[in-house]
Design a binder for these strands. Structure first.
Length: 154
DNA sequence: CGGGTTTGACCAGCGC
DNA sequence: GCGCTGGTCAAACCCG
């Protein structure tokens, strides 16, 4: 099977860091604040509604030959669009679980096609069906961070 | 038969 | 006010 390296990199639209980036660790952490700018629009929308405000948005940068990374959850593709600033189309996925409105965006880099940018939006409200070794560590960080931040679990 | 994927169309927001 | 881009939905199709 194809091996995918997780560059572990992340970015969040929240004040609190969803992950525990070790300072001075010199890891492959890649923070992409660009997404933050894009999420600004959503913030406004959510703000108008006065609901949960912004959504959790985490960006993973993985290095693999395949776009779809098995993180243990079931995803249903609901759209695909070719962005102007990209050579490859962006795929939109949703969690199949009932009540779990977690979205996932996957886009390949125009320069390095082997680099896949996976954007997670929202949090899962159900346990993982299966365990993905590569993603287990990430998921673990996710869940841990979420619990630490004591996010409202619906 | 069920679930998932696909593709096109539609819509909303933002910029100009 | 119009056009563009990005995002979502929905119907049809395909696969297991």
């Amino acid at each position: 099977m194809e091996k995918h390296e997780v560059l572990l990199p992340i970015s969040s639209s929240l004040d609190a860091s969803p992950f525990e980036p070790n300072p001075g660790s010199g890891s492959n952490v890649h923070v992409q604040n660009e997404e933050f700018l894009k999420s600004k629009r959503k913030e406004t929308l959510s703000e108008r509604s006065g609901k949960e405000t912004m959504k959790h948005k985490y960006v993973f940068q993985t290095r693999s030959q395949i776009d779809i990374l098995d993180d243990g959850f079931r995803w249903r593709k609901y759209g695909e669009k070719l962005v102007k600033n990209g050579k490859f189309p962006r795929s939109y996925y949703k969690c199949s679980y009932r009540g779990c409105n977690v979205r996932k965006q996957i886009q390949r880099h125009s320069k390095d096609e082997q680099i896949v940018e996976t954007t997670y939006e929202g949090m899962h409200v159900h346990p993982v069906e299966k365990t993905a070794e590569s993603f287990d560590q990430i998921l673990r960080s996710f869940i841990t961070s979420n619990q630490l931040n004591n996010v409202t679990p619906i």
